[in-house]
Amino acid sequence: MECEESLERMMRALDDELPDGEWLALEAHLEACDRCRARWEGLLAAEEVLREMPILSPPPGFVGRVMARVDRCRARQHAFFGGLALAAGTALVILIGILPILWTLPGWASLAVVVSHSGGLLLDHLVGAARLLLNSLGLLAGALLVQTLPLALCTLMTAMLLAGLWWGLLRRWQTVAT
């Protein structure tokens, strides 16, 4: 038996996976080869040390500390989604408030005409409808920019302010709680 093969058999022997026949052949090789015998003795010594690995107890209060971290993680998740919902809700309410103003803008009327006419004749007049659609969207965008930009900015800032206040309050509550 070659030394390489004997090493492979030693590893299988340590795993209790070496058949008796192969074990006998390994034993015979170990008798004859000083280097492999020294190796085997070393492996057995390492095996003995590794089998001694003691079981350590986690520090007292470990579960409580883990659950406290989990609770903080959940609170952060709730705070994030709460802030998001608050910002979205605020933006929606303000947009509903300004919808009547938007409806009076010139772009809306032509957009509605394009949509109603192109519904049945979409294939025949696709190109024309698309051009009209783009034109009306351009008109609408221009009107929106001129007339509602301040309102949109105001909406955004209000939503951000409220979300910031929400975050601040939550952080304060969490600090007090911990």
């Binding site: 190796r39 070393g42 492996l43 010594a45 390492a46």
Partner: peptide
């Protein structure tokens, strides 16, 4: 590990 244990 066996080598570290210094058996040989």
């Amino acid at each position: 590990l066996a080598r570290m244990l210094g058996e040989v």
